[in-house]
Structures are given as C-alpha cells and as structure tokens.
Nucleic acid binder design. Sequence first.
DNA 1: CCGGATCCCCAGCGATACTG
DNA 2: CAGTATCGCTGGGGATCCGG
Lengths: 138, 138
Amino acid sequence: MPTMSELAWDPYDRDCPTRQLLDRIGDRWTVLVINTLDDGPRRYSELARRIDGISQKMLAQTLRTLEFDGLVTRTVYPEVPPRVEYALTDLGRSLQEPLAALEEWATAHMARVLDARRAHRARIVDASGSGRPGPTQP
Amino acid sequence: MPTMSELAWDPYDRDCPTRQLLDRIGDRWTVLVINTLDDGPRRYSELARRIDGISQKMLAQTLRTLEFDGLVTRTVYPEVPPRVEYALTDLGRSLQEPLAALEEWATAHMARVLDARRAHRARIVDASGSGRPGPTQP
DNA sequence: CCGGATCCCCAGCGATACTG
DNA sequence: CAGTATCGCTGGGGATCCGG
C-alpha cells in the first residue's frame, strides 16, 4: 500500500489519474453498469431491466462512454430483430477489483456512517437550533 | 473477492450501502480531503492551501459532512487566535484503504483509458461524421 | 428492439462579500 | 483564523417523443 508521497502523480492536480478516474466513476450509473456486466455480456434491454431506475438516455450515454474509454465492448449482431451485446473488456474487468473493495467497505461500515448521521441529527434536534446545522438538510 | 450474488445487499437498490457510499465520495472534494487528512491532523487553512482550487464554501461543507458521517473529527482549541484541527477517525482511516486501491488502479491503467479515448476520437475524425459521435464532446 | 434527439429542471459548485 | 450568507451559473440527469 503506497503512501501518497510514493505516487508519481500529484493528487491535487486536476489531471492526475485518480481525479480523472473519480470523475468517471463518480457519476450515478457507471459503477452499477460495470457491476452488472461483471456477470457476463448483457443486451441493452437486459441492462435497462436489471438496473432499476436508470433512464434510457443515461443507460445509452453511460454505455457509450464506457465503450469510448475501452472498458466495454459493443457488439452488434446483424439479425432481425437487431441484437446488441455489451461486455467488459479486460481493462473493465480489472477495474471491477478495486470497485469490489469499495463495495466490501460499504457493506461492512456504511451502517456505522448512518448511525453517526442519526446521532448528529439527534443532537441538533436536542439543541434545537443553537448548534451548527447538519449538512444539506433543509 | 466475493461475487455479487454473495453480497447481502441488492446493488440495484438505491438504499444499498454501495450506492450510498458512491453518492458520498462521488463528489468533487471528499476523496481529496480524506487523502490529505491521511497524513495527520490538519487545520482548516492548511487544508485550504494544500487542496488547490477548493473554495472556502466547499471545504467547509465537505468537512461538515465528513464530521456528520463520523469519518472526521473536528477539534476546537480555545485559543486566540482560534485554532481548529480536523483528523480522520478510525472509520475514516479504514475508508482510505479501498480508496488507495482505486488510486493504484488509476495510476496503473488510466493512461490506457486515455489512449482508448484518443483512438476512438481519431476514428470519428477519420469517418468524418458518418459514425456514431463520441460521448459528451460538443 | 435499440437507441438518438430534445426539453427542462435543479443540485452542485464557484465567486464574492461579510462575521465572530 | 475559521468560517457563514447569498447569488448565479452550468451541466448532469429525468421525461418524453421520434427514428432505423
């Protein structure tokens, strides 16, 4: 596990790889699509059905960007009716590993975060407006 | 490395831990602040100086949210002039580990992603408008 | 069946000015 | 020093309709 000083890039640089990666996977759907494709190739309509809440536009956009970045392949089968399959590339599969680490952390510790949130909120209600307000809670 | 079917939560649920975590760290500054605090406690002005480009508003907001979620502690020293130190909690430090894995992937593979992007863009220019356009490139 | 194109809204963020 | 308050923009994202 390298410390920051051992990394070649300055993480405060907007162009450093980490920032770029976070810009990519930080959106609402990218990680979810990668996760779904980890099980194997999927058709557009399969993805749309499995990823609850995603709009057609965002699914198409996410897939095109993933293809653009070499993380997903798009294969059109010249049949009738047309069939299109999306699959992870090796690069995409390799990204799934650190993503899985994040998921493990989330399942293990996210409940603690939620508890902390509730505790802080309780304090605020208790102090009834005299304390600093909680973040983004209108 | 657990597969998705072994996880307790449905990743397609908006309330699953992974989605919640991504909503938290997916913003512009959270990961950067956590990284900076990994070196040790920092004062507000130190953070502002080290994290290039962050506004006072976003630094304060990010820190308050991190405190709210139990990832960072805020300690006020009753001195004059006032001094406030922020530090990672154990929970915050534990999150730094999967984050570091993500950074390692980024430094190792992000260049390949950039290459893929350039290659696709070159194809588009080559086909001069006949192919599908690249994502989000006006 | 697989999307592209369009309209529109609002949350996130930056800039600036002000306070204890 | 360590924030808060307010304004304004911008682009991410949802809803909907249309085309191959």
